[in-house]
Amino acid sequence: MSPAPGTPAIEATGLHKSFGVAPVLRGLDLRVEWGRVLVVFGANGSGKTTLLRLLAAQYRPDRGRVVVGGIDRSRDPSSIRRMIGVVAHQPMLYQDLTCRENLTFFGRMRGLNDLPRRVDEALRRVGLEARRHRRARALSHGMQKRLALGVATLHDPPVLLLDEPASGLDQEALAGLRGMFSSASGGRRAVVMVTHNLERGLEWADEVAVLSGGVIAYKAEREGLDEGRFEEAYRGGLR
């Protein structure tokens, strides 16, 4: 699926989401253009993971609108799920299936053509070719994160949503992950990443945002980052 021309990759308007009586997002607005890498920072509990789950059409917003690749979440959540790849903090794998079986299962669930080639390519990309027949539970946490990365990118998604993707990855895997961002610079992909790692986040970002008080409290180009305002917004979330 290729990006719809003339539409932003992601557009969220007036997003509200509560769990019980606790509001997490309070009218959040966000826009990400094709070819951009947006890194969202925020304190613990600021709603970063909730935001990603709303963008992934996993949660339904209480109020507000999510449009990904020109598709409105309220009308067609399945098509949004078809467009996105998600790497979460926890690898979303079947521990009793092998690396190859995990990739094949998720590929079939996505209805992908030419699946054996895609699976082989994904295994090579994440450096798990030699472990293709090993069960996920026999892999280290870092290796499982690599496999999760392979699953998330098996369908070459135009939108990547990453929740602390670098945790547990070694330098080689980090370089591979960084390589996936390069297609964003070609305008073919958009990436939203949430992280606590300030150094890596700033290094990888085209744009940075701070989520605080249930809204985007600060958003700027990385090049024009106002450190004072960035810090002020971030600290606002800690109070």
Binding site: A56, Q58, S78, S79, R81, R82, I84, V86, A88, Q90, P91, M92, L93, Y94, Q95, F106, M109, R110, G111, V151
Partner: peptide
């Protein structure tokens, strides 16, 4: 517990 339910729900099937 494995987190695979989240992966399953992220697939585009009904």
């Amino acid at each position: 517990d494995q987190g695979s339910l989240e992966g399953l729900l992220l697939t585009p099937v009904s």
